[in-house]
Simulated assay, not measured.
Amino acid sequence: MRMLILAVVVLAAANVLVNRLGPGLYVPVCVVTAAVLVLIARRSGITWEELGLGRSSARRGLRWGLVLVGAVLLVYAVGLALPLTREAFHDERAAELSAGQLVYRVLVRVPFGTVLLEEIAFRGVLWAMMRRRWGAAWATAVSSAMFGLWHIQPSRGLTGSNAAVETLFGTGTTGVALSVTAAVLGTALAGVVFCELRRRSGSLIPPMALHCALNSVGYALAWAVGRSWGS
């Protein structure tokens, strides 16, 4: 139990750091935190297989990952083609990025920062430690709730940067509170899906692939849509 508490404390400290330090330190903090969490899990007796990082499940995980990436590309293509959903891709934070910043965000920050830390933490270390103690259902419920709470700080600016979110919730204090609540609930539900992918495949590769595709492709499309709207 002490090692599980330690892992939660390390993750909480990382949440503060990644939201307060400059963008240049984001990826190093995420990589170091992920490594520390894995070390904590291993010291507590968690195996590589329990973490979803074992060799035996890697091939199956890769197959699942390829299918999931393809599904994301299809859904995004449909969403971009429909006028009703196209507005959801307009995000000022992405549109303001230069081409170089976009490449860094898509190929470095998202996969080696956001996805690496969040999947190692919530679907790897915490899920494995909780599953061993309380079973898969409780591990999924608690780690997913924590995943939702993890997104409180980064979701506070949604109403000012995303046109669809602003239209839905407004920009006042109430609108911000509602958008943050919706983001927390949405990411918690996404966490349940990620956990189930990890459980069924036995590997962290499928949730990592899905998470990375959603974020990286989403940023690229938001950047393209934002530039076309601004031109």
Rank of each mutant, 00 (worst) to 15 (best):
M208P: 00
A183H: 12
M3F: 04
A188M: 12
L39G: 04
G22Q: 10
A139F: 10
Q153W: 13
V29Y: 06
V184K: 02
L25C: 09
S155V: 05
A128P: 04
A121I: 12
L82Q: 12
G65K: 01
V106N: 04
A141Y: 13
V32S: 04
L82V: 15
W48K: 00
V193K: 09
V192Y: 03
W229F: 07
G230M: 11
S201F: 08
T85Y: 10
R60Q: 07
S201E: 03
L68M: 08
V180R: 01
V184F: 09
S203A: 10
S143D: 06
R132K: 12
L62H: 01
C195D: 14
V225C: 03
E92C: 05
F112C: 02
L97W: 08
A95C: 07
G170M: 03
G135R: 06
S56D: 14
G175C: 04
R20D: 06
N15W: 13
A145V: 15
L39F: 13
P207K: 09
A34Y: 03
S231H: 03
A13V: 15
F112D: 03
E166D: 11
L73T: 11
L197Q: 10
V225S: 03
W127F: 14
G54L: 02
M3T: 15
E119P: 03
R43T: 10
E166C: 04
G157Y: 07
F169S: 08
P83W: 11
L126Q: 01
R200D: 12
G70E: 04
L197N: 10
F194S: 11
N162K: 07
R227T: 12
A136N: 06
A163L: 12
V75D: 05
L51D: 00
G135Y: 03
G202W: 08
L97R: 14
T167M: 01
V32H: 07
L221D: 06
M208T: 13
A77K: 05
S161E: 14
L149S: 08
S144Q: 11
G65P: 04
R227E: 06
L168D: 05
R55P: 00
L197T: 14
N19F: 09
L185Q: 09
S98I: 13
V108I: 14
R60W: 05
T171E: 09
A209G: 04
I120E: 00
G54M: 00
V108D: 01
T114R: 01
V72K: 07
I152G: 02
T114L: 01
L68S: 08
G61M: 05
L117T: 06
A188S: 14
E196N: 06
R199T: 09
G170C: 01
